[in-house]
Design a protein around this nucleic acid. Sequence first.
DNA 1: CTCCCATAGTCAAGGATATGACTATTCAAC
DNA 2: GTTGAATAGTCATATCCTTGACTATGGGAG
Lengths: 213, 213
Amino acid sequence: MALRHAVLAALLDGELSGYQLAKAFDVGVANFWHALPQQLYAELARLEKEGLVAGRRVVQETRPAKRLFHVTDAGLAELERFAAAASKPSFVRDDLLVKVQAADHVDAGPLIRQVEERAAVAEAKIDLFRRILRKMRGDLGEEEFLRAGRRVGPYLTCLRGLAFEEGNRDWCLRTAAILRDRNAAVAGAGTPAVPGEGTAPAYRRPEVARAER
Amino acid sequence: MALRHAVLAALLDGELSGYQLAKAFDVGVANFWHALPQQLYAELARLEKEGLVAGRRVVQETRPAKRLFHVTDAGLAELERFAAAASKPSFVRDDLLVKVQAADHVDAGPLIRQVEERAAVAEAKIDLFRRILRKMRGDLGEEEFLRAGRRVGPYLTCLRGLAFEEGNRDWCLRTAAILRDRNAAVAGAGTPAVPGEGTAPAYRRPEVARAER
DNA sequence: CTCCCATAGTCAAGGATATGACTATTCAAC
DNA sequence: GTTGAATAGTCATATCCTTGACTATGGGAG
């Protein structure tokens, strides 16, 4: 039930429309939470009904009208309550890690490609985050901004996003190199397609007949 | 729909009972996926019905009987298919980051405590991961193990977990220090409880009367 | 002149996850 | 001698999240 609080936190920086929120919570920039547009519009409706945010309609000339939302005092109080409550630990849930976990038992080719692609994605995010951070701190140096700047929350979460993506990139590059080496070694030793099968799996499945292959 | 593949990947290292799986997917060790026991038992039942895993009953003397599951050839094929398909990017979803995003608008005290507690949790996980890695590579050095070891998938995902927790710890410690400094600075300047309110929020809420406070 | 993209927002359906409780046995501590 | 932790597993409910649509307008590319 933290999506609502993520929305409240995002609206602290100023009024946003649902559409703008959706972009902020989209892949690429969502440093502290991720959500799809449908969720956000639904959550905004709930938050408004409960009086935690309020919206005002803004008519535009060249674009469809939009509704800009801001956090009410009740919303701020709710955020305060949330921030003081215990946080549950966060979990890893990543398709790619599941695949790497199985790396010794599946075809290495597609996996290596995916890991390398992820490294490129991480690199792009790193660039983006660096630009965002520069923009947020303006003329000030990082240390100075963090000491005296008036709004450091988003800066700090962006720093976490940056460090995460740097870790991601480094790990992906190393993992890809390792899998490539192993794949080449096994291929050189004569086993053609599936390297894991060449290097004796740690666990021989019992009672299941290993047909063909 | 990746939980099933995470279960398959976990069972590659040998037979496991639902209970053992649950421990592996619990907080603390789940390097590549996290899930609750209920989910795992349900998923195991589905996987068995579809013939992707098979279980055998093992009666024990001092403990209740258990069912040990292993991946079938069909399961391995399914995992192969999954590994070759495109992975969707993974997302950040962390209560604590939401709170830090709102750091300038909420009471800093409880937040700082939580960030420091998270740093301690990360430190404990780092120790745990280092022990697990040492155990997995045995006598070999890391480079050597990754070149020649016969099962590196779990080692690689554990390395990612280690790097993640190191990043977590470093960020938490730095963030806590920054928030402490800022809190002390504002308290010294005369504002008592809520420091964010002392430093002029970037956005003045319109049309909403700012009662008392 | 048409097609696609960006803006702005909504609906329905179903799968995935979380919360909380519950059974049953054994060992070890108090 | 009863309570508590660990083993082993299950059920029900509720909420969350994802998938895949769909409406509508305006601007720019080709």
